[in-house]
Amino acid sequence: MTATDPNLTETAVTISVNGNDVAVPAGSSILDACTAAGIDTPTICYAENLTPVNACRVCVVEVENSRTLVPSCSRTAEEGMVVQTDSDRVRHSRKMVLEFLGSGVDLSQADEIAPWMETYGADPTRFGDDVETMNESVRIEDDLYVRDYDKCVLCYKCVEACGDDAQHTFAISMSGRGFGARIATEFDVTLPESACVYCGNCVAVCPTNALQFKTEFDLRKADNWREEDQSVTQTVCSYCGVGCNLELHTQDERIVKVTSPNDHSVTSGHLCIKGRFGWQYVHAGADD
């Protein structure tokens, strides 16, 4: 949105990141400052279009005079803060978080996480073979979504996207406690029985492919999901008058997935069922 809200004013704060001063607008997070300083920070539960929940703790940094490490995604940068992003303590915690996740969750399709495993030398196998895992089976309850909680890292993103960060449908919640916590509808009823309105915003924010569009799932199952052969075209949804931007992921001249740019002011990456799935008529009558 064009900054015409007269209440918006911008002042800057300066913090030190790895010895270099970085100026960012007041209210920015340490993560924003790290990004401004050109430092790549691993994140899993963070998304620019959601409220930070600081649950995964992979983005932790060392802040002078803080007893523990702090999550960079949700801690506001304060004037004069001194931050280290690559100390032994930071590297240790990031590595452990990745090992913890890798030891209990199927990260085989977590493309964003894989490079961090390498960077931090994470070895999820070192807890042994006989460890508790998510141990969930794939759920297919309709033609649009697939839920595979064996891949779920409990990052809360889907809950936020379904709830008051976007859709306000509240069909899912974190349930249970501790390692037994799971994303669930009420009493774990199927999605079609739940309040779900199939906006797909949960799928869009999932960092590990625990939530997938059925189109992608089917192509993967047929061993025909080829991201390297896909292109992404930004356009505008054909339905109502909101003007949501769509990113059409195409493979072999077919739309295989629809996302929306997080940084676009109209809907910040969120769509409704029509924008997310209503494209199928484009290929109506084609040989399938």
């Binding site: 309709d142 033609d143 999605l191 079609p192 779900c196 199939y198 054909s238 339905y239 209503g278 109506a284």
Partner: peptide, 11 residues
């Protein structure tokens, strides 16, 4: 429904 009839909506 010319366009939206093209997909199976669970709702």
């Amino acid at each position: 429904g010319v366009q939206s009839g093209g997909y199976d909506s669970p709702i």
